[in-house]
Write a protein that binds this DNA or RNA. Structure first.
Length: 664
DNA sequence: TGCATATTTCCTGATT
DNA sequence: AAATCAGGAAATATGC
């Protein structure tokens, strides 16, 4: 157990650990694979340029994306043989992590941090550790075949350890210390949450049960056979790298097959069939290792797996990769990702919606490819306005709620939706039937796209898509039903039950509506679609309520602690039992809070002032000055707060840590 | 309309 | 030196 390092024992001694990257000495040029050094990028020297990346990475061509991609590529190739992963980089990295003095050293400065390769190296180190630990496990359990699950678990555990550790997550995983510190972390955290939900600590091998807070150190010193090729030293091109990877794997497979073949042919000279079995097992393990590594990386980094890698991984992995998940944005379908900003949501075309989704992904540090864009492919702004949270979840089961919340923020001041609905109401009240038809058509078309598009479509055509038994199929009163049915499969109970004219008064959903009475939940479909326009004295429309449930600052922080996209990258637990948490990135938290409150001027200064008002109400209580916690940016929930509870994994890990500390 | 609530904004000064 | 903490005071936005 000596080679475990307990992060919690280091952190209190160094509250500023998250902002103190390792010294430059931890990495040297000679320890970096050639192709990382040879590539150049405008924004981040040392990384491959965005033009060299596949489409799936182009959604957000940040340096960290490039780093992730390269890391995946490296790991896919090198994890095929775990020994290759025991690189100098990994060894040095781990030694560096183990050196508490260095971590605590005040001499570390931002400028000395080699930001151009840190993310990749950190990841390689973690992957190396995974390979190493699995290798050990394999040696210990001789006859146990290495399973995909166990390897993936090991990899996941190491990433848990790394991401949980602020020194790694905030400093090392930030690909470019200068331009985008910490940008890697949310992705990793997002991925980890799904892993954590699958892997309970009790299922881990004994050596990994403290993984959430510990990182194994002391890797053997290396022998780093980098992929050496003259071209790579000049141009770090992915196709060539991929080709080399393929060639090398084919060679390895071929050699092993030859070995087995010759062994079988010379069987008479062999002492026992068990050796053949061992050799076959070795081959099997090698193959499984390769696939397991690939599966693990693909599971961890679905967004950065490009077609080259998928092809490389072989059929065993493909079933786990959905076609939609990795569908690149076609080059010829580029969209103006800024246009939507100049429009109101009800003016958004389907392209604007996609562009907005890109911005949501970026803002939340979610790989855009993780969004089920297909689910929103036919949604225009007006249609989004009619969709409730459940409908968003139907479009994207994973991120639907988040996207819904983001969209509600956009229309929170009720301006655009009110205007839009009012316009329709005015039109709708015109007596002429022909007008009604026309207006219904306009609206229905608007739901799909703004007037500029799809104008050739007719109302009849749209209505034809509706169920013939629909109560609105023949009266033109509510074409949204038809549209929603056409858009995507909708559960019958989700159908819009009432004519739009009747739903304009939030508090007055018509009492005559049999639908409402028989199915009260249906009114929730129109949550937020309010015709009641509240305005301030100066005539400006009121912003969305600040007192809405779940909209208080402490509740926002509570939710951030539950959200893998913000915990532990923005806020994280210090002591989940006691309700002690720490703000990791203060300004980012303030920015997120500002976004929620539609206040671009929010700062951490102001946020913290609001936090201090909570001491009076005991929503927060002073953090005990026991020396257990950092002195800054640490808060504690008090009896006035409720609903906070730490993720089970953290609690379990923390308990184990307590036991471990008690034992020692 | 007025009051209560929950911040938000600005500030000074202390601490890390 | 910069970031953070502490808290007073007034302003603002919103719900009821």
């Amino acid at each position: 157990m000596k080679n475990f390092i307990n992060w919690s024992s280091i952190e209190p001694a160094c509250p500023a650990i998250a902002s103190s990257p390792p010294p430059a000495s931890a990495f040297s040029a000679s320890s970096v694979p050639y192709f990382l050094l040879s590539a150049t990028a405008d924004s981040s020297p040392g990384f491959i340029t965005s033009s060299q990346l596949p489409n799936s990475v182009l959604g957000s061509t940040t340096a960290s994306k490039a780093a992730e991609y390269l890391a995946a590529l490296v790991s896919n190739s090198q994890l095929a043989n775990p020994l290759l992963m025991q690189t100098q980089t990994a060894g040095q990295f781990n030694q560096q992590l183990l050196n508490t003095e260095q971590i605590n050293g005040s001499a570390t400065t931002q400028t000395s941090f080699p930001g151009h390769n840190s993310a990749t190296e950190a990841l390689i180190a973690v992957l190396a550790q995974s390979a190493h630990s699995v290798n050990n496990t394999t040696q210990r359990t001789t006859n146990n075949n290495l399973s995909t699950a166990s390897f993936g678990q090991s990899l996941a555990n190491n990433l848990v350890a790394s991401v949980t550790n602020p020194a790694v997550s905030t400093s090392c995983f930030s690909s470019t210390a200068q331009s985008s510190p910490g940008t890697y972390t949310p992705n990793a955290a997002t991925i980890l949450s799904s892993i954590e939900s699958q892997n309970s600590p009790t299922n881990l091998p004994p050596s990994r049960q403290h993984s959430a807070f510990q990182l194994v150190g002391g890797l053997p010193q290396p022998n780093f056979p980098v992929l050496q090729h003259p071209s790579l030293q000049l141009h770090g091109t992915l196709p060539l790298l991929s080709q080399l990877v393929n060639q090398r794997e084919q060679q390895q497979q071929h050699q092993l097959q030859q070995q087995i073949q010759s062994t079988l042919e010379n069987q008479i000279h062999l002492p026992s069939p068990s050796s053949i079995q061992e050799l076959q097992q070795q081959t099997q393990v090698e193959s499984q290792m390769s696939q397991a590594a690939a599966a693990a990386v693909s599971a961890l980094y679905p967004s950065i797996m490009c077609k080259i890698l998928q092809d490389h991984l072989g059929p065993a992995l493909r079933p786990s990769l959905t076609s939609t998940q990795f569908k690149p944005i076609p080059q010829n379908e580029r969209i103006d990702i800024k246009r939507f900003r100049g429009k109101e949501p009800h003016e958004w075309s389907t392209e604007d919606v996609i562009a907005w989704l890109v911005s949501v992904a970026r803002r939340n540090d979610i790989p855009f490819e993780d969004f089920n864009v297909n689910g929103f492919a036919k949604c225009s702004g007006p249609l989004l306005m009619l969709m409730n949270e459940q409908r968003f979840r139907e479009c994207d089961s994973k991120y639907g709620s988040l996207i819904y919340v983001e969209f509600r923020k956009l229309i929170s001041d009720d301006t655009c939706i009110d205007d839009w609905m009012r316009t329709y109401k005015e039109d709708d009240q015109r007596p002429s039937t022909s007008n009604r038809e026309q207006n219904s058509e306009t609206l229905s078309l608007n739901l799909l796209c703004p007037p500029s598009q799809n104008s050739s479509q007719t109302l009849n055509g749209l209505l034809a898509a509706a169920s013939p038994r629909s109560p609105f199929a023949n009266n033109m009163a509510f074409p949204q039903q038809a549209l929603l049915q056409k858009m995507s499969p909708i559960q019958p109970q989700m159908r819009l039950p009432i004519p739009i004219a009747n739903i304009k008064c939030e508090e007055g959903v018509p009492s005559t509506s049999e639908y409402r009475e028989s199915r009260p939940t249906e009114s929730s479909l129109l949550h937020g679609v309010s015709m009641k326009i509240k305005r301030n004295k100066d005539g400006r429309p009121r912003k969305r309520s600040q007192h809405t449930k779940g909209n208080k600052l402490w509740e926002f922080i509570r939710e951030a602690l539950k959200d893998p996209s913000t915990c532990p990258s923005v806020v994280r637990w210090e002591d989940p039992h006691q309700g002690v948490f720490r703000i990791v990135e203060s300004e980012r938290l303030a920015r997120l809070w500002g976004e929620k409150k539609n206040n671009k001027k929010m700062t951490y200064e102001k946020l913290s002032r609001a936090m201090r008002t909570y001491y009076e109400k005991q929503i927060l209580v002073p953090v005990p000055k026991t020396g257990l916690y950092p002195k800054k940016l640490v808060y504690k929930f008090g009896p006035g707060a409720h609903g906070w509870c730490a993720p089970p994994l953290l609690v379990a890990s923390s308990l184990q840590m307590d036991q471990h500390e008690n034992m020692s």
